[in-house]
Design a protein around this nucleic acid. Sequence first.
DNA 1: CAATAAGCGAGACGGTACGTCTTGTCTTTGG
DNA 2: CCAAAGACAAGACGTACCGTCTCGCTTATTG
Lengths: 215, 215, 215, 215
Amino acid sequence: MQSRSPASRTGRPRSAAADAAILAATREALVDLGWSKLTLGDVATRAGVAKTTLYRRWAGKNELVVDAVAELFDELELPDSGSLAADIEGVVLQFAAILARPEAKSGLMAVVAESTRDEALRARIRESVVDRQKRLVVEGRARAQARGELPPEPDPSHPARTVDLIFDVIAGAVVHRALVSAEPVDTTWARSFTALLIDGMTAATTHSRSGQVAQ
Amino acid sequence: MQSRSPASRTGRPRSAAADAAILAATREALVDLGWSKLTLGDVATRAGVAKTTLYRRWAGKNELVVDAVAELFDELELPDSGSLAADIEGVVLQFAAILARPEAKSGLMAVVAESTRDEALRARIRESVVDRQKRLVVEGRARAQARGELPPEPDPSHPARTVDLIFDVIAGAVVHRALVSAEPVDTTWARSFTALLIDGMTAATTHSRSGQVAQ
Amino acid sequence: MQSRSPASRTGRPRSAAADAAILAATREALVDLGWSKLTLGDVATRAGVAKTTLYRRWAGKNELVVDAVAELFDELELPDSGSLAADIEGVVLQFAAILARPEAKSGLMAVVAESTRDEALRARIRESVVDRQKRLVVEGRARAQARGELPPEPDPSHPARTVDLIFDVIAGAVVHRALVSAEPVDTTWARSFTALLIDGMTAATTHSRSGQVAQ
Amino acid sequence: MQSRSPASRTGRPRSAAADAAILAATREALVDLGWSKLTLGDVATRAGVAKTTLYRRWAGKNELVVDAVAELFDELELPDSGSLAADIEGVVLQFAAILARPEAKSGLMAVVAESTRDEALRARIRESVVDRQKRLVVEGRARAQARGELPPEPDPSHPARTVDLIFDVIAGAVVHRALVSAEPVDTTWARSFTALLIDGMTAATTHSRSGQVAQ
DNA sequence: CAATAAGCGAGACGGTACGTCTTGTCTTTGG
DNA sequence: CCAAAGACAAGACGTACCGTCTCGCTTATTG
């Protein structure tokens, strides 16, 4: 999570309890104050920890918030629901459930904004948040292929089936609906979105750039 | 833009030049410093204006940045390219072009993050940014209907064709690709995404929740 | 006292009341806490002033304490008591009265200690404290010469009568008695000391380096 | 030096070398940083010792500095120079030589300042510094009496001859000259001062409080 | 054309948070 | 039991911004 001393045998070891307390306090502060009013001093106080302890382990507010929010994504799981549509719906709703929590709302977009100017931060986010989401899409795709719902080999003439693209569409749409449009991501919406996506993924033809689309 | 005193007849009028200078200085500071290190004092200095002048016109950093970034979206235009696919591609690429600019990257996501805790800010963003984007989607849909590419009436059995859904998918996917995945939104990607979306929009059937999808 | 902006016509002028409140708060804190536990944050709080206001006017703790203690020396006055002996006694007792106050005890020696490594601080102390003491010695000498108690011209063969030497002896002895020996500088001690000093100043002869002392 | 466990038979004995290293490191730090910037952590590092070791042996910065500076006074010695004047001069110059060293300058006045609020510290200073200086004055007086330069019995009608008074005058004048006036205590000054003092000590008469002194 | 009213620059103000440093204690490994 | 290493809670440091305020001055409109 934070930088691990490779081999420091001597000296008092870092308190493991402090880590958990700090991350929990960070989420609590995110709920109460939001990202911009969250202060490390306040987090330290809430965690019953000295500010120095906090700075010893995290480089700053951004890194701390990423780790605190990342723990929310530990619970992401892809239950085998028997069909691609149900799997996608499940992923959408699970992701939405996390985004609905105020600590995620406040924190996640803010660190993404910060990451536009900090490559290391982006890597940290990718590693501890994005890739965990993406794993679900990859798994879901594999299951659909096993079931025969999707062709086993990625069709080079059909780039619409790329995992990267599908993932950006799913994650982007859910985030935009939840945070920008500020409308609920409920079962109804999830079903509509899933229908749109599956139709897009499974359509038979690739389109020429300016051709007529549907007849 | 900012709140206008409804009837202030007497006294010295506010300098119009100051407004422009401040917004330009804000974008410059966003490029140089990013949202989190941008300070109103620095913006005032860059604009050659007193801090008081700035606070007289904007309530705070968030409102200022929204207005500064909003001006970037003035240039959004939907050229009539003759097909739905080309229109969508155009929208995607125009939106991506704005997002590629550092002042938009830094500022936009940050104010969206802030807006999760500030309803007035969200309204301001919607009004001056989101609705301007959405207008393109609405227009594009109208043109497609006029051309016969899409059915004229929104099909209640086909919610996938809702403007709101389509807009969240387009805007969300572009933002996610650009800022989270940090991959370029170029013509290739835009074409793949457009194909996926059009297939989803024009598919003949609505899917039952757990049915087999494609055969 | 602190650095005076030579000519700043514009901007809000500095509060004169703040200066007085800060210096009074500093003396209060010196009494309560002593020099080493005095913090500028605490002084600011006591004065009902922001820390920034304090740092805007003084470079640090040392400069602030010098100014705060210096005000105690404003009351130094040499009443014309009619004889050299009485004048010296008066100076000794006045100086001792100031040194007896805990804010002087705590602060004065500490800044002198600091001044051993800070030439600017030493100059500030000399200007606002030492020279005000010295003035009394100079005046007392002038009066004694006017009365005929001391020869009018400084005797080059009698360097013992130098003002600098006399001043170091008076000030040094009083400080040492009060702070190092920690014994009271009362009338009895002042009288003994005065006798010793006047005898030294008015003795007829200068001594050769290794000769018998008095004959 | 520091408190010695009266009978600690068991366990690893304390390193005697550590004590010397710590005191030397303290003096080195005093030279480099002065009293106010000297930190115990830095001293420990310079001495190649753990902070714990330091705190185990000294109660704090003040006590440590007193011990470190006190060692400088070990070298004080009164060579029998054959006359009272030469003895006094010798004492003055020896004391001045120590005060000229930056580790003494920085440290001594600071701990004296601290001692105004700490009775135990004052006792420690008296014991390890002041009394060692005073011993020289006592010895010098005894020799002068043996030589017949001073009357054998303390004259109750002549309190100017009290050892305490003489000591405060000598030590105070030297310190004031060296640290407050910041002028060199060289042979010239020492000779003038000695002349003044001896004249004061050996004058025949006690003065009535308001009598005419010299004509 | 003078009076009035608001805008404007400059910069001080009371606050708050920053990220670092020091203090004195505690907890580990190892001699 | 002592020593080194270093983590720990506490809290001060001096700086930077915040958003407000008080100045003296400028620029319009209105009487």
